[in-house]
């Protein structure tokens, strides 16, 4: 069955779509009230973030737009030291989209939300003319445990990366170019590792998820916000052999590839080893590494394995469009 404009009319077809897809999978006390807005409790400072997801293809090895739309927003909350609690989901669906695919997307969102400990408390659906595309916006609310800010990084901090770079980018490119390989997207919520770091009293100075623009872009932004220099060692950067080979064949630079389940953080160097051990014990963190340190100065300097130093800049140009 295909989605038609009638499903967005606000009438019977719309309520059937909501009932059979969204209410079915997202069911919870707050959402089930079906009021015009959700009313939720809070005794803490709250973090709010919003993100729209336009990835193509909708399904790829290791994930889909639904899982992505939960992970992206949940991870943005976590990076500010917030515990993700509530999420809203707004769908813009082009007519011709497949009903079963939409349901699989909703199902995957529900599973990922459960994994991340959030509930979907509000939603919206619109159907527009088009060619079967599906776009999702999610807004997330979290309760702030520790106010973590990019500008908090201190000189001599260690820089930690939570795992292999490039998987998501490589998967999306492979799908679009019909290249067969074993690479899977890293599409994941980072709750466990962030909670474990906090529980073990690791003093996280700054934390960012490494998404579009890649590690180099994120590090440039971090360095700028604390007015210090980030120095990384290129051969410490974790990546899988398949992704490295993929980059070589297509002339891609690992440092600029997008990810959807990786974070970079700065911690006092005395705590770095312990922090890496904690992350490695968590789901999605087994390849975490200390990749460098923070120094006086500015910008991001990368030391190659032959000892040459070069300055890294943010991603210029288009990168890969519609990766998330």
């Amino acid at each position: 069955m295909k989605i038609t404009l009638a499903h967005g009319s606000g009438g019977k077809s719309t309520s059937e779509l909501i009932k059979n897809v969204f209410a079915k999978h997202f069911s919870n006390e707050i959402l089930n009230m079906m009021e015009d807005s959700a009313v939720v409790d809070s005794s803490k400072k709250i973090a709010v973030t919003t993100d729209s997801f336009v990835v193509t293809p909708l399904f790829y090895r290791g994930g889909n737009i639904g899982r992505l739309s939960i992970c992206g927003t949940v991870n943005d909350l976590l990076m500010r030291g917030a515990v993700p609690k509530y999420i809203t989901s707004a769908f813009i669906i082009e007519e011709g989209a497949d009903f079963d695919e939409l349901e699989r997307i909703a199902e995957s969102m529900a599973e990922t939300a459960e994994e991340a400990g959030v509930i979907v408390v509000a939603g919206d659906t619109k159907v527009i003319e088009g060619n079967g595309g599906i776009y999702i916006n999610t807004t997330g609310i979290g309760f702030v445990e520790h106010d973590i800010k990019s500008s908090n990084t201190k000189c001599s901090d260690s820089i930690i990366l939570s795992g292999n770079l490039g998987d998501h980018h490589a998967v999306i490119m492979s799908e679009r170019m019909n290249i067969e390989n074993e690479i899977e997207s890293d599409n994941a919520p980072l709750c466990e590792m962030v909670f474990e770091l906090m529980k073990n009293n690791i003093e996280i100075h700054a934390m960012r998820d490494v998404t579009r623009g890649g590690l180099a872009t994120v590090l440039c932004e971090l360095a700028e916000s604390c007015s210090l220099q980030f120095e990384i060692e290129e051969d410490k950067i974790p990546s899988s052999e398949s992704v490295r080979a993929f980059c070589k064949i297509l002339g891609l630079n690992l440092l600029y590839m997008g990810n959807e389940g990786k974070m970079v953080l700065t911690v006092p160097s005395a705590q770095a080893e312990k922090a890496v051990e904690i992350i490695r014990r968590c789901r999605y963190g087994e390849n975490a590494e200390i990749i460098g340190s923070v120094k006086e100065g500015s910008g991001v300097v990368s030391v190659t394995k032959l000892g040459a130093k070069r300055t890294l800049s943010v991603l210029y140009g288009e990168g890969l469009p519609r990766i998330c």
Partner: peptide, 12 residues
């Protein structure tokens, strides 16, 4: 050209 730049060859 890209590899020379990315690997900082002229510094070596």
């Amino acid at each position: 050209t890209a590899s020379v730049c990315e690997n900082g060859i002229d510094n070596l």
